[in-house]
Write a protein that binds this DNA or RNA. Structure first.
Lengths: 197, 197, 197, 197
DNA sequence: GATGAATGAGGATTCATTCAT
DNA sequence: CATGAATGAATCCTCATTCAT
């Protein structure tokens, strides 16, 4: 209860989602506050009731965008470590590939803009590390596995695929590329650390 | 003789180099023609004697930036294919790492902006392919080596390092990262295709 | 109540009237948006809240200028057809002559610029035709009167006087010229079509 | 002798004729000195060797344009004063109608711009007056003919046709309009002043 | 909380004109 | 005489932001 609050939240959401759409389509720099409020059917002044400056919007957007990418915490259902890791990598890329290429471009543009976005990378690395550590716990990987190094290497490859996708777009299927990488590389990469029975 | 032409060329160069500096520091969208001409000590009108529009400048810049990255055609001096490939990868990254982080960011921003920059990727892939094919010619790699796949995989990794560097900057040393990748991955990646004596 | 709307309307009017003054004095091409807003004491951005482009202003102005010229629908009070027609012609020219010569020049400049302004001519011709037809109705002119031809001929003369006035300005009194034309020409021009008692 | 002078004259002519073409097509304000020199294949500096300012060009153009309009001094070959006058009027309009409508528009625009162009009108009036006086000399018109008044009235009509043509363009045939005027008006207009045999 | 009119610094671009070569 | 690089004021227009209602 609090109809006013509800309305306020709705207005805020409307603003964000409209901005998201427009920015994905045309890029951040090409979207004016004017365009956002007109497309939302909301007054310009109202925009500034919710955001102190235009920049605050993109911060809000980035939070929303980054979230789902690592939201899917892969369930470790079977006993093959390679499959588990592959599933994680493929899931990761699938989330990104499901969005429009414009979104990915925006993401790259934004994340590469400054080292202030460091956190995202750290977070992703840690996610990977957690995965690998779980596999160690499950006795699928050796205790001596260089967790941090592997996580960075894998993530770098993923980021590389994203960037490449932005550049080549139509030509390249990012998920297929990840799968090929897994087939070609994962066995030899993880081979030394697998616990054999 | 030719004093006027020389001056003209100098003016053009001045404009380009100043723009390059400013854009590297602040990003393309944040640099106005005004800022460029003021920093150059050149009149605004003169700018438009050389470039029909601001956009033409970045085209000019990108040409200059992209050129050196693959200009260094690695010499294949010794008989170890792994070293040859590693040297190529390291050289590639060194050229990029030698520039400021701002330049790399600008490069990522620019190259990921549209699939029109596809050509750069294609070109890099082909460079890699040529390297691998030379190694086949030299009987260091097997004829059956999947040249295209390997080239793409290696380049994706390089691009991934670049993007990661843009994100983490101070934290990460891109050249070291490439070296680590080579040490960790190249042997197993190329192992199946090495011609053993 | 409605204070903001009132202000907005006032601002718009202020902009239009200022622009009108300046343009009459100096001509459209010689007046910058800057000059208009400075003279209005209104911010430049505000100008663009009301008009998408400078051109829209002149469209607005032309509408206002054209309107009054034919607004005065001459009352047909007496029984002499020649007087009625003369009064109409003189009224027409008086409206124009009452404005400054600069306005007339602007009008000529604008109306002669393209055949898109055709409508104004058509409208004026029709006004004349209506007048003549009324006189036929009143049995002052014969039914056989070549209404369209006469209307065109008379209007051409009026337009000629306007253009001549623009050229000679101080030397020529447009209203007097029209009167002279009426005295000299109307009798013989209309003679054949007068209904005599 | 004077090859250099010849070249100079040629350059000047080239500049003027190119400017004329461009201005007829696009209107004075839309043609830059740059456009003129580029279209002429002549250097910008050279332009300023011949004309101190851009305005001087249009002055030059106007002289050339105005000239032919009254160059055709009508020969008075037969003994019918009405035919003589009609021929003069029709010739006058034919010269104008032979040019493109754009030229006429430019002419109107230019001549109506300021009373500095008064001279053109005076000159045309005098031409008419001379014609009428010749007819008086030839004993075709009475000595009491109000030469000045008639000349002004006829010329006003001509100018009116020109202006109307600019407004209506496709719809109206200026020469035909003049002929109609002659048929409809000349007899009664000149009737009182004809010398009857 | 919502509105939208007002703001004005800043953006890209044009162009007549000058002057050293 | 011819050249064309250099100039910079002026032009139209954009846009994030403020504030009275």
């Amino acid at each position: 209860m609090g109809k006013r609050e509800d309305n306020a939240i709705a207005t805020r959401k409307k603003l964000i989602s409209t901005a998201n759409q427009l920015i994905v389509q045309h890029g951040y720099e090409n979207i004016s506050v004017d365009a956002i409020v007109k497309a939302s059917g909301i007054a310009k002044g109202t925009f500034y009731n919710y955001f102190d400056r235009k920049e605050d919007l993109i911060f809000e957007l980035s939070k929303q965008r980054f979230a789902p990418i690592t939201a899917r915490t892969t369930e470790l259902t079977n006993d093959d470590p390679l499959s588990n890791i592959q599933r994680y990598l493929v899931d990761f890329m699938t989330v990104i590939a499901d969005s429009k290429i414009g979104l990915a471009r925006q993401w790259v543009r934004y994340i590469s803009a400054s080292s202030a976005n460091n956190a995202k990378w750290q977070f992703d690395v840690q996610s990977f590390e957690r995965l690998l550590m779980k596999l160690i716990d499950l006795n699928q990987l050796k205790i001596a596995t260089p967790v941090h190094q592997l996580a960075q290497l894998l993530l770098t490859q993923l980021y590389g695929v994203i960037l490449t996708w932005c550049i080549t777009s139509e030509t390249l299927d990012p998920v297929a590329t990840v799968k090929r990488f897994c087939a070609l590389q994962l066995p030899s990469l993880l081979g030394p650390y697998l616990v054999k029975e």
